[in-house]
């Protein structure tokens, strides 16, 4: 399901939070909204979810105009920043909720919940209460709850911001894997450049309610439009390289003009890639 946003504007009182934004998210794309806090990215996400009504402009899922569709009729799966797991329901009941709403019962209901729990690798936790889970586990359940309904669009609102650094990189790979498996059109909101650069098919950089630039991570690095985008993404040296070997799920060995090195990527041997080296990752040692 592709998503089209045209000339979308949202105001709260006198502040314009989303200002004449137009976007096109392709079917199956992992699309990022990247920007500092207060840039309007979460508002844009909530406009897609239907929790806010736009003041101007159009939202379309496929050909369908969504402007006046209630949030519960949009078939979006949303993962909230604080996970929003219901404390009075078990993990199973949390995940099954969307199926209950859709009248899916019996064996099918159980099968799909188990399937969703399997995708996020949380089988065996079905009878736990959300309070008994760690932050990372709650995160996975929130994801399962959004996936189980087979949403047209998956909406992720800063899903990793409440996790510690180690869990964050682990979940980043999980989301990459799950996206590859489900091929869901996904809108991912974050303020973390690393997250966006590592995962995104395309990124929209937002500031003050306006989209500064849209493009693939590489395009944004190569041709940042304006100082804001360049500074927000951080400077980098881009060098061409060839993949020589796959080390594991997340790591490959590449050959560059500077020599062979390991880097985090998912690619096949023989692929031609561009790698970005940040100045602050380069350390000068005394000779």
């Amino acid at each position: 399901m592709n998503v089209t946003v045209q000339h979308l504007t949202k105001r709260f009182g006198k502040t314009t939070v989303v200002n004449n934004v137009s976007l096109e998210i392709a079917d199956g794309e992992l699309f990022f909204l990247l920007g500092p806090s207060g840039s309007g990215k979460t508002t844009l996400l909530r406009l897609l979810a239907g929790f806010y009504q736009p003041d101007e402009g159009e939202i379309r899922f496929g050909d369908r105009l969504m402007n006046n569709v209630a949030p519960n009729r949009r078939n979006t799966g949303m993962v909230f920043q604080n996970y929003a797991l219901w404390p009075h329901l078990s993990v199973f009941e949390n995940v099954a909720y969307g199926l209950d709403v859709r009248g899916i019962r019996g064996a099918e209901r159980i099968r799909r919940v188990e399937e969703a729990l399997a995708i996020v690798q949380m089988r065996g936790y079905a009878q736990r209460s959300p309070a008994e889970l760690s932050g990372g586990q709650q995160q996975r359940i929130a994801l399962a709850r959004a996936l189980v309904i087979r949403p047209d669009v998956l909406l992720l609102d800063e899903p990793l911001s409440n996790l510690d650094a180690k869990l964050r990189s682990e979940m980043r790979e999980e989301i990459r894997r799950i996206h590859r498996e489900t091929k869901l059109t996904t809108l991912y909101v974050t303020h973390d450049q690393q997250e966006a650069l590592a995962l995104a098919d395309r990124i929209a950089v937002m500031r003050d309610g306006i989209i500064e630039q849209v493009g693939s991570p590489l395009q944004l690095y190569r041709n940042p439009r304006g100082d804001f985008v360049r500074e927000f993404l951080g400077a980098a040296h881009l060098i061409e390289a060839d993949v020589v070997a796959v080390l594991d799920e997340q790591r490959v060995r590449i050959r560059t003009p500077l020599g062979e090195m390991e880097c985090a990527a998912s690619a096949q041997p023989g692929d031609r890639v561009t790698c970005a080296i940040r100045p602050n990752d380069v350390i000068a040692l005394r000779g």
Binding site: P71, T76, L155
Partner: peptide, 25 residues
């Protein structure tokens, strides 16, 4: 409030949300 929004997001009506999520909580 996100607990209620999560319910609406998954397709539950406002009434169902009140009954299943808000009131029990």
């Amino acid at each position: 409030i996100t607990l209620e929004e999560a319910s609406l997001n998954l397709g539950a009506s406002a009434w169902r949300t009140l009954r299943k999520i808000t009131i029990p909580l």
